[in-house]
Design a protein around this nucleic acid. Structure first.
Lengths: 346, 346
DNA sequence: TTGTAAGCGTTATCAC
DNA sequence: GTGATAACGCTTACAA
């Protein structure tokens, strides 16, 4: 019985194989080692069940092949998807992902950065709301949806174009009097551009519109009241709504229906995000401008891991697309019922 | 200019404070240190911006205060919620969470275990499907929804009771001819008990029922065909369906509606999981038996971190509850529209 | 109390 | 090519 009952180390492997410690290290790091020694070492390692200790390695090499993803929480599908794609991309490149959730608390955001820094991650991808976040210049950092400074690359979808697209789509589908709905965010960020894009398109094309932004603490109630005020003789005085998020769009649809208005017959609604009901990329909950979450994740990872980080773009906007989801007047084929894209023979 | 441009170490703090290395360590570990020295050290640390290097600490102490959560992917809301609650619970206890996604691949599951083991996590919480998973007896492990062996505690909701509850609810709400729908899982697990509970209740109460389990590769198509076969003169020969998951329930509702059947008027549908549309615990997508995800997460964490792990229960089943979600005949108040539980004055 | 020094499991720099 | 040996930044006896 060995004196060591715990996990075997390189030393143990070296002893077992009858070679030196350095040789064992060379084998596992792909350095020049004669075939016979290599085999001896590999056999000894297998026999002992040796696993590299990445903490020891990290201490020595000063890189851990671990990156942190900081976000408010994976309860929201957008963050959940982002976490999923980032994690997948990292694993494929031999990296690990640490997940830190902040619940929208600015303090927690800073604490999470501190936490993962102590943990010697090689970089951070963060989706944060604290405008005064202190970011270590020496630690690779990529921000999603929020611009911090020239030295922190920011990834987002093309929010402005998304707003434009929403307005255009609504009009193409027959809407003539538009509304923009949003719940005011606590701090400004890239998503604010959705409204700007929407309004700009409407102005340019002389489409009448109105923007309603409620305060955060009022939740959805103001929209309920507004919708009711705008209904005369059972008909609303608007016929198209662009909501800043799918969640808001979903609730608005509920409100409309509860007030006797048909969606999409009377009023068409487009949201933003492209949320899928069960995360399988096939069941939209509303018609929406969908964010390219996977591309954003891949881009964030690639920029974070990029060898030369001195010439990174300050802001990267990835293209959005429109997807019907039943709240606009449009063929909306439920492919998930009928099978692989084949349309139901009727 | 210091020769060291990188992050300061305890040595730097010691030099700056004019004390020894051991004293600095004692300060940060709450050991007995005279007040004057303590202050000197803390000031030096602040001045230098010292942060503990957890890799060095972990190497020495053999514990990293990091645990791994392994699951198929956070794209599905159930896993996403689980990841969120586990992460939250861990952070509150000063632990970090590593997220590893497997995409339902048995190989990946094993690889992820290897990966996080190399990373010296203090424990693993896993939601896996590989029945032959090799689990290191020395590393604390808690399994969710799958029983492995006496030495691996398994957490799940009370699936059997959930099946029973679904059957009972459907009947209480007026259904008389029931159906159970499921897509056959690749491997058996705790969730299989849902069907058993459902059928047992029906038998005991002499309620006619039928169970339809389609094979995985057929997706939803078999259910579409079946529903159509069962409609005679526009009326189905069943009036209540219990689906093994919310996702299936959601699709079934779509299928029913597309075939001219009203939900919940003609047919009532109950799913399983308790998925919330935007992760905010208030927007159900179907009537459902809801899993106590937060309690399961807390339980998993507490059992994993438990000081005495020799007397842990083999299987822990947490209670489920029924929640109306619009697909059963029942008051379903959309609280998120009208405000904090106050019902709309009518 | 405070300082000194050994050692955690690696990698890396040397001689050989 | 291979084998000693010195770090990496920390904790922890043990000595002072």
């Amino acid at each position: 019985m060995n004196k060591k009952t715990s996990t075997p180390t390189m030393k143990d492997v070296a002893r077992e194989a009858g070679v030196s410690l350095g040789t064992v290290s060379n084998v596992f790091n792909g350095a020049q080692v004669s075939e016979s020694y290599k085999i001896k070492v590999e056999e000894a390692a297998r026999k002992l069940g040796y696993k590299v200790n990445r903490y020891a390695r990290g201490l020595k090499t000063n890189q851990t092949r671990t990156i942190a993803f900081i976000c408010p929480g994976t309860d929201h599908p957008f963050f959940a998807d982002m976490a999923n794609y980032i994690s997948k991309a990292l694993q494929e490149q031999g990296y690990r992902m640490m997940l830190a959730v902040t619940q929208y608390s600015p303090d927690m955001e800073q604490k999470c950065i501190q936490m993962v820094t102590e943990n010697k991650v090689d970089g951070i991808i963060a989706l944060t709301y604290n405008p005064d976040l202190i970011i270590d210049e020496n630690l690779p950092f990529v921000s999603i949806d929020r611009f911090y400074s020239e030295s922190v690359p920011c990834i987002s979808c093309d929010n402005y174009a998304g707003g434009t697209l929403a307005a255009r789509k609504l009009c193409e589908l027959g809407a003539t009097k538009l509304l923009f709905f949003n719940i005011a965010p606590a701090v400004s960020g890239e998503p604010d551009k959705r409204q700007a894009g929407f309004e700009s398109w409407c102005r340019f094309h002389n489409v009448p519109f109105e923007s309603i932004v409620s305060s955060d603490d009022q939740a959805f109630r103001p929209f309920l009241n507004l919708v009711r005020d705008r209904i005369h003789d059972g008909k609303p005085d608007f016929d198209g709504i662009f909501c800043n998020t799918d969640k808001l769009a979903y609730v608005i649809c509920q409100i409309l229906k509860e007030n006797g208005i048909s969606v999409p017959e009377d009023v068409q609604v487009i949201g933003f995000d492209g949320i899928n009901m069960f995360g399988d990329n096939m069941m939209p909950c509303v018609s929406s401008i969908v964010q390219p979450v996977e591309q954003m994740a891949l881009q964030a990872v690639s920029m974070l891991l990029s060898a030369d980080r001195t010439h990174l773009p300050t802001l990267t906007c990835l293209p959005v697309r429109y997807r019907p989801g039943g709240t606009t007047r449009e063929d909306f084929v439920k492919e998930y019922i009928y099978g692989n894209g084949e349309k139901e023979p009727n």
